[in-house]
Amino acid sequence: MNISEKTRKYILLGLVVFILGGLLIANVLASKQNETFQTEDFLYQQAIQFYQAGNYDEAQKLIADLVAEKANSEMVNYLAGLNAASLGEYSAAAIYMQKALDINPHNVEAPMFMLQFGEILFSAERYDDAKIVLERCKEWNWQPEDYPEYQEQVQGMLTQIENMK
């Protein structure tokens, strides 16, 4: 089969147009995705600032928007859990923390995450679950320099759980 020179030019031109069109579409989609990311990042940073400043109600408004947009984000669920606990909504906080753990099971190896999760479960009166988490914390025998009371707090909650039975 013999392809004429004119046909080869049209094929080459078609490929060039196809590639340039694809690059243009990718650029447009990427810029929209970048705008979405920047907006979500701004909301997340604002929520963290409100949380750290102790303005939990304002943080909750932003977190609700983030959870609606990024329900499968470990960090969003973690922040939502901490903020809900600060508002005294321990059952909701436990759900958010469990979801953060489900998204990233490696958090089971993070001592501070597990302590916070144990405290939230304890405050939500889910004592059996709290005992499991706190016993995991006790197994590590971890003593961080910035939180030397870690093991005492773990043992204190475990003692309270045992005294309730």
Rank of each mutant, 00 (worst) to 15 (best):
Y147H: 10
N83K: 04
L87N: 12
A93D: 05
A110H: 11
F18A: 15
L20F: 10
V67N: 03
R8Q: 13
G21A: 15
A124N: 12
G88W: 05
Y44C: 10
M164F: 02
V16M: 05
W142N: 05
M1E: 10
I103Y: 06
L87T: 12
L134H: 08
A47D: 06
S31A: 06
E74S: 13
T39F: 00
E89A: 15
L13H: 01
V133N: 04
G54L: 08
L20I: 13
Q38H: 07
E135S: 11
M1Y: 07
Y147G: 04
A85H: 01
K70H: 11
K61C: 02
C137F: 05
E135W: 00
V154N: 07
N2I: 14
A94R: 10
L101S: 11
E74C: 08
I11H: 01
E125P: 02
Y56E: 10
M114I: 11
V154E: 04
A26L: 09
Y150A: 02
Y44E: 11
I103C: 10
E139F: 04
A26P: 02
V67A: 05
M157D: 10
I25H: 06
A110M: 08
S4F: 00
I3H: 03
L15N: 08
V133P: 04
G22Y: 00
L121F: 01
D102W: 00
K131D: 12
A53S: 14
Y150F: 15
Q60R: 13
E139V: 10
T7D: 09
S31W: 01
K99C: 03
K165Y: 00
N55G: 11
V154C: 03
G21Y: 01
N77H: 07
M97K: 03
A124R: 12
G156L: 02
A53K: 13
T39Q: 12
M114E: 09
Q160A: 15
I95G: 06
N72Q: 14
Y78A: 12
E40V: 03
I95K: 13
M1G: 15
I63H: 07
M157K: 13
N141Y: 01
M114D: 06
E58Y: 04
L66K: 04
Y127F: 15
Q45A: 13
E152I: 01
I95H: 03
D57E: 15
S4T: 14
V108M: 09
L121D: 09
